[in-house]
Simulated assay, not measured.
Amino acid sequence: MPTLSAIYRYPVKSTAGESLSSARVLEEGLEQDRRFMVVKPDGSFVTARKYPALQRVVARFDGERLSLIHDDQVALTESRQAFALERFDTRVWADDFCALTTTIRLDAWMSRVVGEPVSLLWLGERSSRYRDLIETRVSFADGYPLLLTSEASLADVNTRTDGSHVMAQFRPNLVAGGTPAFVEDEWRRVRIGDVVFRVDAPCSRCVMITVDPERGERRAGGEPMRALMRYRKGADNNVYFGQNLVAENCGEVTVGQAIEVLE
């Protein structure tokens, strides 16, 4: 039986992942996952697609204090009590919604990392972003509350490239172990612990997977995108790796738990 081999969350969209032994699953995704996002003055979101240095930012948020670390910056910690909490119009792809401002110090810190004026927004306790397509609220994630990948699928990609690609390039929340490569494409509903997940749609990939998360730079040669284009391209010409999930109920998941395939 497949098992849950890793859990990751990303407190700030596009920054480094945080490895967890267990996590609370809520309607909008993992607790404290992608609750912050960097935006330009016009509200458009900023990601490591264009600003790969973001992946070298280590963010931690416990619900009360946000800490940011980057090799080229002085570490910064701000209390949620200091957030200005002014409504700010923003968007993720085609979704327009409101988030909340944080502090001038956080904005300035992120601006230095990105190299241009930006702001750091917080979703608040409850996201105002509701996606009719999947009938649920979503965090600052691209389109779905959660993303599942598998160890075997990454290993398969590495047999077709230089073999040095890591799971962090694909930015999953949940990783399956003990499966054949890409068997997750066949799943429709799974249970991990007490939580049932709907496997809603395959995840189309972009240039983000070519960013080396340790160096915060794009890899030479366009891999692993070039390899995936040879055998993971759909009829729509998009490249797919991993599956988007929607939780049907709330609960806790823990590394080592069995992944029961319901459908």
Rank of each mutant, 00 (worst) to 15 (best):
R230H: 05
R226V: 15
R205K: 04
G222K: 00
P224F: 10
R226K: 15
D212S: 10
C203P: 02
N237G: 04
M208E: 01
C203D: 08
L228M: 15
G221I: 09
G216R: 00
R218A: 14
I209K: 10
M225F: 14
R219F: 03
M208I: 14
R198M: 05
C206W: 04
M208A: 15
V211C: 08
R219A: 12
G234W: 14
D236Y: 07
L228H: 09
R219T: 10
G216T: 03
V199D: 08
T210M: 12
D236W: 05
D200A: 15
R232G: 08
K233V: 13
A227M: 03
V211Q: 05
V211G: 05
C206S: 07
K233H: 01
R219Y: 03
G222I: 00
P202T: 08
N238C: 07
P224K: 07
G221K: 06
N238G: 15
M225C: 08
P213M: 02
P213Y: 03
A220N: 06
R215Q: 10
R232T: 11
A201W: 03
R230W: 00
R230M: 07
M208G: 04
M229E: 15
C206H: 03
L228R: 05
V199N: 09
R219S: 12
E217W: 00
I209H: 02
L228S: 13
F197I: 07
E223M: 06
A227F: 01
P202G: 04
R198K: 09
P202D: 05
R205Q: 05
F197R: 05
V199E: 00
A227C: 02
D200T: 13
R232I: 06
A227P: 03
Y231F: 14
D236M: 04
M225G: 13
P202I: 06
R232D: 09
A201S: 11
V211E: 02
T210S: 12
N238Y: 03
F197C: 10
G221L: 04
G216D: 07
M225N: 08
M208P: 03
D212W: 07
V211S: 05
R215D: 09
V199M: 07
E217N: 00
M229N: 15
N238S: 09
E214T: 02
A235M: 09
M225S: 11
E214G: 05
L228A: 11
V211H: 06
E223S: 04
R218E: 15
C206V: 06
G216V: 04
C206Q: 02
R226G: 10
S204Y: 10
V199S: 07
V199G: 09
G216Q: 02
R218S: 14
P224T: 10
N237S: 14
L228T: 13
P213E: 05
A201F: 03
R219K: 07
E214Q: 10
I209E: 06
F197G: 10
R232W: 13
T210F: 08
M229Q: 15
G222H: 01
L228D: 15
E223V: 01
G221F: 02
C203A: 11
M225V: 10
I209C: 08
G221C: 04
S204P: 09
V211P: 05
